[in-house]
Design a binder for these strands. Structure first.
Lengths: 255, 255
DNA sequence: AAGTAAAAAATTGCATGCAATCATGGGTGT
DNA sequence: ACACCCATGATTGCATGCAATTTTTTACTT
């Protein structure tokens, strides 16, 4: 039962003795632990509500308990981890309601990003997104979900980047990580109609962006995320009931 | 020069020996340290960029360095504190650009809150906000800024609460704390016209809420926050240049 | 006297230690 | 057999210790 942490190799972050290596240290040890732990959790290597033993994680990362615990507190504050008093850390389980909240919030943030992007983006920026959109449409026509998802993500990130607001960006990324932990196999295989609907929404997004209609784009993006969330929740419900013991496949994400 | 931490008394959080007090402990020590440190910083007791010495804070809170450092890392992740490698913690300074970003983001979140509130708020909830609004108008007529600000805050919080989204609420509060640290004396004393403009905006807010016009309310709230931010930045600029050495008065907040 | 170099003091970063708490298993009683 | 209780081991929470810095002080040179 101690095999809950398979996927990450045990390369120590710090030299066996002394402090952080003097030469090759780009980022602080704290940042490094934080990043690796966050990845470890976001990648979904631990089940929902799964225990995060300090000793195990220490061995995995090759550090002592003090910096590890600091990282856990940060992740708990971020909402990825749950800290039970005297009973250790667990991966914070996400209920359907939590997921709905997260999608709504992401919708608000993307809506804001779209609004700001309309004010700030350059014509070249718009053309780049138009190019992504065009490529995405190609994947859609060829029914290539992998490619579609990749371009889709590029578009959404480009909009958030174009908002040119670092605080928004950081908040967005944090929430995205929390959601990403739940892999929705709700790809479009079974929901062909949602796929075409999403594609139509993206037409509206590009159109509003081209017209720099911020308020309108904000509405569209919010609704787009909400629909995405609804599809995710629908699948999530199915998955919960079907309850495949270890859904370890490589499921795509919703939209 | 060691008198940078005046305003908080040195009541230890933990008993001199052993762990947390067994009887009266409601929240964990970590939460307690976090809350007190956050307050300490948000209340503005330390200057922008001011040093946060571990030893001083330990004495102030009556805990050892380990839990204190955990709290500092969390606050750093929240953006309230800046951690310089080997050089300790400082209060993260806010540039005018940072403030603008924060207000834009708050605008996005309040806009989202308004949109969600339109879907979820009860008629009684609307009437309560209408009551606040009415009271606020009274204070406005009597030129009572204190009272006006109080009601104003109640309204904004009520909208966020009505959105009934805990994740949104937490994100909002965190950002609000970061902004609150900067006390804008930009009360309406010198900007009478902004005051009346803000009052008009609030009329629109209440009206849109009553009609449950979510998208419209979202726009209005975003613009309201943006105007608020512009006023704050305008004052912030003045203050920066005037540079009163220790603006220790009890300035009100903008809008 | 101003600037620089070296030494001393203070501070940070992490590992370890110890008490308190939680988890587990075996035994007893009904 | 089932429930309850206590002993044992594992784990968490915090304090402390020590090496690697940084900062301050002191001494010295030009």
């Amino acid at each position: 039962m101690s095999s809950t942490i398979p996927h990450i190799e045990a390369v120590p972050l710090a030299e066996p003795t002394g402090r952080t290596s003097p030469a090759r240290d780009e980022t602080s040890l704290h940042e490094e632990i934080l990043a690796r732990l966050r990845d470890y959790i976001v990648e979904g290597h631990v089940a929902d509500g799964g225990r995060l033993s300090e000793r195990q994680l220490c061995e995995m990362l090759g550090v002592s308990r003090t910096p590890l615990r600091e990282a856990l507190k940060v992740l708990a504050a971020e909402g990825l981890v749950e800290l039970l008093p005297n009973r250790g850390a667990r991966v914070r389980p996400l209920s359907a309601a939590d997921i709905q909240e997260l999608f709504d919030l992401m919708g608000g943030l993307e809506g804001l990003a779209g609004r700001l992007a309309c004010e700030k983006i350059s014509e070249e920026g718009i053309e780049k997104i138009a190019q992504y959109h065009h490529d995405m449409y190609g994947f859609y026509m060829r029914q290539d979900m992998q490619g579609y998802f990749r371009m889709n993500q590029l578009i959404h990130r480009a909009i958030v980047d174009a908002a040119a607001n670092a605080t928004l960006h950081a908040t967005y990324e944090s929430l995205a990580g929390r959601i990403r932990r739940v892999r929705f196999s709700a790809n479009f295989a079974r929901k062909r109609e949602r796929w075409s609907e999403a594609m139509r929404e993206h037409e509206l997004i590009l159109d509003a962006l081209r017209r720099r209609a911020g308020s309108e784009l904000s509405d569209i993006l919010f609704q787009h995320l909400r629909n995405k969330g609804a599809a995710a929740i629908a699948y999530f419900g199915e998955e919960q009931t079907n309850a495949a013991p270890a859904p370890e496949g490589k499921p795509a994400r919703v939209d």
